[in-house]
Write a protein that binds this DNA or RNA. Structure first.
Lengths: 144, 144
DNA sequence: ATTAAATACTACAAATAGGTGGCATTTTAT
DNA sequence: ATAAAATGCCACCTATTTGTAGTATTTAAT
């Protein structure tokens, strides 16, 4: 658990963008919506561009849009990219020896818990999130 | 995922102690076994005492033993204690507004993945670990 | 052309996490 | 008594993460 703040910010930005329309989002606009520290947010957006989740357009009316279909972006991908390659695949105890032949004492327990989590995170994309979000909006409208 | 190094160390120490006999473990002994940086390990052991997982005895032949029955120590407790209260119970996106009435867009998805994990971690104690470890030892003996 | 609104880049500052070393105290063996 | 082997405590150092600020560049509206 306990994702880094940077990863939380990335999830926040991308899920915000995904659940809204296909507009171009400026850093300033996202700052007002998400309250992520302004300068850090700008750097993060540049980073997310370099990672290929979004792309930027320069100049007035510029900003950020998704660089690919949001069906292609899973939560696992986002977390894994932000936290560094295979951050979720390491031995819980940080033993470098913890491989199939020489598992550490907690290997099996950790594998089980983790694999459940990874399954859910891999099978859920930003598109799923958008769908769910819009269903919830509808449900709330009906109940008014 | 991605527990802090300190939490990994704590899990390493406690699971090591649990799967061995009921001896008193000195910091120096654990240092040799676990290769956690010596000084940091000593500080950590003092910390684990303060948290009530283990207790220390001073002087020559002193060291650390469990402060309570290892049936009473779950992995969830260890992680939660080390990472700070309810570190696993916060909103994934770090929104302070993310409560039942006003969940953030990822609330449900995160809750589901997380609750599976927490279930496993809460239901597994150091005693379970010990039992499993000893069964594995037996199995390996038989296959020799 | 000029200005405004946007991103890119970069150097620095602050906060947190991880790690070290020394000295004081306690206990046991001799 | 003294020395050895242990923990307790504390001050400091280092590395990493998070956050800030300013300048350069690009684009569109006027």
């Amino acid at each position: 658990m306990i994702l880094s703040k940077t990863t939380e910010y990335a999830l926040s930005i991308l899920s915000y963008m995904a659940t809204r329309t296909d507009e171009v989002y400026s850093a300033e606009y996202l700052f007002n919506e998400l309250k992520i520290p302004r300068s850090y947010l700008r750097r993060l957006l540049t980073g997310l561009s370099k990672f290929g989740f979004i792309k930027s357009s320069l100049g007035r009316k510029g900003g950020f849009v998704f660089a690919k279909d949001i069906k292609e972006i899973s939560f696992y991908q986002i977390i894994n990219t932000m936290e560094g390659a295979d951050a979720m695949n390491t031995c819980l105890l940080g033993f470098s020896c913890c491989i199939v032949d020489h598992p550490c004492v907690m290997h099996d327990i950790w594998m089980e818990a983790r694999s459940k989590m990874i399954n859910t995170l891999s099978n859920t994309t930003l598109a799923d999130l958008k769908e769910k979000y819009q269903q919830d909006l509808l449900k709330n409208l009906r109940s008014i």
